[in-house]
């Protein structure tokens, strides 16, 4: 018999000799209870650690992996170039985190006349680096088609003969509006021109956004046959603190820079924008080769002044956007 077996045998004998068995049983029960509760509490601790640890890892991901600021910049810049005549107040962005996801909520504004009006409220949810949910609540009265096709954009390329837009009806709508209103209007041209030329031909209204010819706007189909929507950039100097166009010597250069950033995150940019496809590499290559020319602009101003544009030879078609009561002080 070795030492170990001796020990076991002696303790067995000891147990058998104990007179008060109940006291012994009690001790065993208490030990079992303690170890059971320790197990339960340990499990609880581990379970409760899951959320804080994943939250910490999530924040680390947004700080050092795909940066939260990158996601925010791509989202906001995409909207500046894909949604005509809109601006954002990034300082009012609401950013919050929960394990593995980030929420970004913000308002989008439209210039109508001389004032900015709230146009849309965005609620974006990211699962780590990819957009998992997009919710847009609009306060607009005339909402651009939700599902873009090759025939329904409001700005039309001169060579595009395939549009659903009924320009005659739009001019009549504009003509019927009271004179005391300011109007946002989508004007398409008969020919390509530079943004400066466009501004010079329409001095009495504000040109706020210009759609840029990217080679595929004639058909609104990319090389591989996917539907694309117009892209362009804000024309007016924008000095709000967080705007990507703040203090820009040329909005055109900022536009090019934005497209380059978007190209790196094209999947996200496409998801954020209302366009089905952006086809950025193709379009950037075309713009680098042919320069930046516009085929249509968004203007805003008093109804009378916008109506006067009908007489211009270069104007091909019109779509009336938002209409507000007079706020023009010029």
């Amino acid at each position: 018999m070795d030492d170990y077996e001796k020990l076991i045998a002696s303790s067995k004998a000891e147990i058998a000799n104990i007179k008060d068995q109940s006291k012994y049983q009690k001790a065993i029960k208490r030990t079992i209870f303690t170890s059971k509760s320790k197990l339960i509490f340990a499990t609880l601790t581990v379970i409760l650690l899951i959320a804080p640890i994943s939250y910490m890892l999530t924040l680390m991901y947004y700080a050092f992996g795909t940066k939260s600021t990158t996601l925010m910049d791509v989202a906001s810049q995409t909207l500046y170039v894909t949604e005509p005549n809109t601006s954002l107040e990034e300082i009012e962005f609401d950013m919050s985190f929960s394990p593995f996801s980030m929420k970004l909520a913000f308002d989008q504004y439209k210039r109508i006349g001389e004032e900015d009006y709230k146009a849309n409220t965005y609620d974006l949810r990211f699962f780590l680096g990819s957009l998992s949910k997009k919710e847009v609540t609009t306060s607009l009265e005339r909402v651009a088609p939700k599902h873009p096709t090759e025939t329904n954009p409001w700005l039309i390329h001169p060579k595009n003969r395939n549009s659903e837009l009924d320009t005659g009806r739009e001019w009549r709508i504009l003509g019927g509006l009271p004179d005391e209103t300011v109007v946002e209007a989508y004007i398409s041209f008969n020919d390509l021109m530079t943004v400066k030329e466009a501004k010079d031909t329409m001095p009495n209204v504000d040109v706020v956004w210009a759609a840029v010819d990217t080679g595929i706007d004639k058909t609104n189909l990319s090389k591989d046959g996917k539907v694309v929507s117009p892209i362009g950039y804000p024309v007016q100097p924008d000095n709000s603190t967080w705007s990507p166009f703040r203090d820009a010597t040329s909005n055109e250069e900022v536009f090019k820079a934005i497209l380059k950033t978007m190209e790196k995150h094209e999947e996200l940019a496409t998801a954020v924008s209302s366009a089905k496809n952006l086809a950025l590499p193709e379009r950037i290559a075309y713009m680098n080769k042919h320069g930046i020319k516009t085929y249509g602009v968004v203007v805003t101003g008093p109804k009378k002044e916008v109506l006067a544009l009908e007489k211009l030879d270069i104007v091909r078609s019109l779509k009336v956007g938002e209409v507000k009561l007079w706020n023009w002080s010029r």
Partner: peptide
């Protein structure tokens, strides 16, 4: 260790919060 974890957690969140939220 739970208390220590919470203290470290708060510290890390505070520091990373500055990087993650630019406002």
């Amino acid at each position: 260790s739970v208390v220590l974890f919470i203290m470290i957690f708060t510290g890390i969140i505070f520091i990373i919060g500055w990087i993650v939220v630019p406002f």
